[in-house]
Design a protein around this nucleic acid. Structure first.
Lengths: 231, 231
DNA sequence: GTCTATAGTGCGATAGAC
DNA sequence: GTCTATCGCACTATAGAC
């Protein structure tokens, strides 16, 4: 699978995510017309993600958000009741969407080596489609209350566990030689993260996503499929 | 080399960094007594790094900083002329210190394999001693003006180049089999960064720094020293 | 060199017209 | 459902006493 194929399969759109979110929280929202609510919520999310990516969520004022989203101050408050609630909503619903999509791509594959590669590619390609979301998850954790920080924390552990499980499965069946599946899973995550947190570097160097995906797969496979190092 | 040995060798103290900084910027500072200036500047840096680590630099008010550093509002402004200047000073001088120390540990070694391991360990161990600084460099880049963002950017590229140069040297002399030194160097950096940006994870799992250093060395060596993968 | 007191600004949030 | 106008507050930064 390459990025182009992934993109056509997933077709994750911001609108889908927002519509899902609206339907789940219909009761709490002041706006009753679904298409109005979804359209505006898409603007708000898009604007928030863009501005947060540029200057950080804390530094983004609600007046900035008005300008970027095209809504007025008063209108914004029909969609959330405080700036803190806005950051929470994006975290909460974003992580849920990511987990849903990643689950699709790692179930129904048996061979651990194939599954590992599928998980890495799906994860990386999704981080590309949802680049601002992924960056937001990591950079804006501190804007959550101590209690709500469990959301990104659990999401981090959940994704990591996808890798750990595959690695342990492969170890049990003798396909992989991996001493520490936990550290290895966490290393895979670290490599994913570099792609979306330091995109400027990869853009500058003309390194495309498929090239990066191949690289991550090769470094991990050389580690877990190795027969014997020359040490 | 392990962490304990590194610590005893480097003895990097916040006071040394601040004293160096004071001497270089003596002209700009309002405070003329060196020991007063250094003592207070240490407090300010320590407090800023701590609070930024907890809630982010932007969210830290100067009143918070007064409380944490023990200085008053007025006194703070004898050490910097605006909050923006404070964040710039920490970035500027912090990166300079890191580069100075890392250079010490990677010069005078010839064998590329030995040098690679020395660089990885020194870098990781230093990130432990200066944990809040390293986290600050990454998380608080957005608080710099567009122009000043070149400081962390150049520092990122500089550290990476340390690895790239070692890898290319090893490739030329036939010790390493590495297809893409640039991507490999950037992967090493990504693994370093995971250690100090997600310390909660490693602390939770009781993974110590020496264990993590061994792991990073093993994954990278298995990649660049490999004879033949079993693919 | 450090303090307290305060000026001035821009923020998040709300009320009420339409 | 969306707007404009505005309130009260917390912030950065400064002035002037000590």
């Amino acid at each position: 699978m390459n990025f182009e194929e992934f993109k056509n399969t997933v077709m994750v759109s911001l609108e889908d995510i927002c519509r899902g979110f609206y339907r789940e929280n219909r009761g709490l929202m002041k706006i009753k017309k679904e298409d109005v609510a979804v359209r505006n919520f898409v603007s708000i999310c898009q604007a928030t993600l863009k501005l947060s990516n540029e200057k950080g969520f804390q530094a983004m004022s609600l007046r900035d958000l008005c300008g970027e989203s095209g809504l007025s101050m008063g209108a914004l408050y029909s969609y959330f009741s405080s700036k803190d609630e806005l950051v929470l909503m994006i975290h909460e619903h974003g992580h849920k969407s990511v987990q849903k999509i990643l689950t699709q791509f790692t179930t129904g594959v048996d061979n651990p080596a194939v599954k590992l590669q599928a998980a890495i590619r799906a994860h990386l390609y999704l981080s590309e489609l949802m680049r601002y979301w992924f960056a937001f998850f990591f950079m804006e954790t501190k804007n959550l209350s101590k209690k709500d920080r469990r959301i990104p924390v659990e999401s981090e552990l959940w994704t990591e566990k996808v890798y750990i499980d595959i690695l342990e499965e492969g170890k049990k069946s003798g396909v992989f030689h991996v001493d520490d599946p936990v550290l290895t899973g966490s290393a895979i995550k670290a490599l994913m993260q570099d792609w979306y947190l330091k995109r400027w570097k990869y853009t500058q160097r003309n390194i495309g996503i498929d090239q990066y995906a191949d690289f991550v797969v090769s470094i991990i496979e050389s580690f877990v499929l190795k027969k014997q190092s020359t040490l």
